[in-house]
Design a binder for these strands. Structure first.
Ligand code: MN
Ligand code: MN
Ligand code: ZN
Ligand code: ZN
Lengths: 147, 147
DNA sequence: TCGTAAATGATACTGATTCTCACTACTGTT
DNA sequence: AACAGTAGTGAGAATCAGTATCATTTACGA
């Protein structure tokens, strides 16, 4: 998705949620796009210091409700945000248990299909209505292995 | 794993970590065993009100370091704990986004094997050293669908 | 039994996140 | 262009799950 297409899609999603696409929100989207992976609030503010922390928190919540971003919870104390899969495509995360960093990766569509049908069976057996799956790999990133 | 075997295994793991298997810790293990799925601190204290909150927090941290329990992070504000996979076997979680409850489920070993090899390839491509994977299904539990 | 170290639990503290509210910016109307 | 009404902003206060403290109690080994 190009920058302009992304912008249009975000504008449409915010419109559907009766929210404006303000300049703070544009800067947030821009920071997330540039980050290339889930970012903490601290990382976002470091990327664009014109964004006050309270505005970042508030707008990320609004963007999440509008389906524009996704909140990622790992095991450290900081939430992370990334552009929603609707905008970037379905993918998964490599979570470094040493430094907390999160990297994206994707699986072959065949594997995803196999997985989805196995999950559908498991969900049905438990009377659970599944919306999505979340698959993370926990371990140590390249930087932390070298260090 | 029977209750006695569980007890022996927990004792061994705590011993390896130079920790005692005290009565508070026995009560915690018992509550987690009875819970049958990941429990919040509130749920644990509700199950066994003789356990003070500070003791629960401290001992869950110690039990986690000893490899006896696992801390589960979902999307709500409460951490959950369950017996480690070493004791219960590898499995996954159905996470209800309405009420926050977490249920266990397992996948066919064939699917797990397929998944593991796909994940190994993805990890290698990113220079990531993987320890384990975490696969959750997000959706609505039976109770919340009916309600 | 005694000395030492570990565990306990009531309480105070920390810090990421959320809330508040006076102020500013936007949008549509006359 | 001025105005009214509404949405967004941002500095600071409040919240609260989780952690640290420390005086007291308990357990282990000599
Ligand atoms: Mn997937
Ligand atoms: Mn489980
Ligand atoms: Zn790392
Ligand atoms: Zn539920």
């Amino acid at each position: 998705m190009s920058l302009n297409e992304l912008d249009d899609e975000v504008a449409a999603l915010l419109g559907d949620a009766d929210q404006r696409y303000t300049s703070s929100r544009r800067r947030l989207i821009s920071a997330l796009q540039a980050g290339g992976g889930p970012l903490t609030i601290t990382q976002i503010v470091a990327t664009d210091s014109s964004l006050p922390q309270s505005t970042v928190y508030r707008n990320l919540t609004i963007l999440e409700e509008a389906g524009v971003v996704t909140r990622i919870v790992t095991s450290d104390d900081f939430a992370r945000y990334e552009l929603a899969e609707k905008l970037t495509g379905h993918h998964h995360h490599l979570i470094c248990t040493a430094c907390g960093d999160v990297l994206d990766f994707s699986l072959d569509v065949g594997i995803e299909a196999t997985l989805d049908s196995a999950l559908a069976i498991a969900a049905a057996a438990a009377g659970f209505t599944a919306d999505s799956h979340r698959l993370d790999l926990l371990g140590t990133c390249r930087n932390c292995v070298e260090a």
